[in-house]
Computed example of a mutant assay.
Amino acid sequence: MERYQLQKIVEDISSTFFGKPFKHQALFNSKLRTTGGRYLLNSHNIELNYKYFEEHGIEELIAIIKHELCHYHLHIEGKGYQHKDRDFKVLLKQVGGSRFCTPLQNVKGKRTATFHLYECTNCKTLYKRRRRVDTTRYVCGKCGGKLNKADN
């Protein structure tokens, strides 16, 4: 999808569902990773994540555009445009936009949590930790025994 096609879609959705014109720019931002889109307060532009269009199709993109247009029109009118505001929630429900977007299947840069497992040599208590523990300095909290790295 080209930028001018996206601009046309956003303008059409704005006039159809909101009854107001969209006078700023809509564009794809390749740096967005986990969010479907964002409304920029200073420039009033809307940036969208192209990956959502590729993975979920035009329906998901339209729902995201409606969401961002709610921010846009409420902010310009001076009403509550944030997610927590009642004006935003009511307008989003009226136009049928999505409150949250469907998660992407493969998000780059998202790390899975790794855990380190330690076992007491005396009482066999297991300790699961996110960070590595210096076993020469720390001992078991129950019996005071020595800790050893356990097999995961």
Rank of each mutant, 00 (worst) to 15 (best):
E2S: 07
E2P: 01
E2D: 12
Y4G: 03
Q5P: 00
L6A: 01
K8V: 05
K8N: 03
K8S: 04
V10T: 13
D12A: 05
I13S: 00
S15P: 15
S15E: 05
T16L: 13
F17P: 00
P21H: 03
F22Y: 13
F22M: 14
H24R: 10
Q25I: 15
A26M: 08
L27D: 04
L27C: 07
N29Q: 06
N29T: 05
S30R: 11
K31R: 15
K31G: 11
L32I: 12
T35E: 04
G36A: 08
Y39Q: 07
L41F: 08
L41I: 15
N42Q: 12
N42M: 14
N42Y: 12
S43E: 15
N45K: 08
N45F: 03
I46Q: 08
L48Y: 07
L48K: 05
Y50K: 15
F53P: 12
F53V: 08
E55H: 15
H56R: 14
H56W: 14
H56C: 04
I58W: 00
E60V: 11
L61V: 05
I62V: 10
K66P: 07
K66R: 11
K66D: 02
E68M: 09
H71A: 08
H73C: 07
H73D: 02
L74Y: 02
L74E: 00
G78S: 08
K79F: 06
G80K: 10
G80F: 05
G80D: 04
Q82M: 09
K84A: 00
K84C: 02
D85N: 14
D85Q: 04
R86I: 14
R86N: 04
R86K: 09
R86D: 04
D87W: 12
F88T: 07
F88W: 02
K89Y: 01
K89S: 06
V90Y: 02
L92T: 07
K93I: 00
K93R: 15
Q94P: 02
V95C: 01
V95W: 00
G96C: 00
G96L: 01
G97E: 05
G97Q: 03
S98G: 11
S98W: 02
S98A: 09
R99K: 12
F100Q: 14
F100N: 14
T102L: 14
T102D: 01
Q105F: 01
Q105K: 14
Q105V: 09
N106I: 01
K108N: 06
T112G: 10
T112N: 09
A113S: 10
A113Y: 07
A113K: 15
T114C: 01
T114V: 09
F115M: 09
F115V: 14
L117D: 01
E119C: 14
E119A: 12
T121E: 13
N122S: 09
N122E: 13
C123V: 13
C123Y: 12
K124E: 13
T125E: 15
L126A: 12
L126T: 06
L126P: 12
K128C: 02
R129A: 02
R129T: 08
R130M: 11
R131N: 10
R131K: 10
R131H: 06
R132W: 13
R132Q: 13
R132I: 01
Y138N: 10
G141K: 13
G144A: 13
L147T: 10
N148Q: 09
A150G: 07
A150T: 12
D151G: 12
N152S: 15
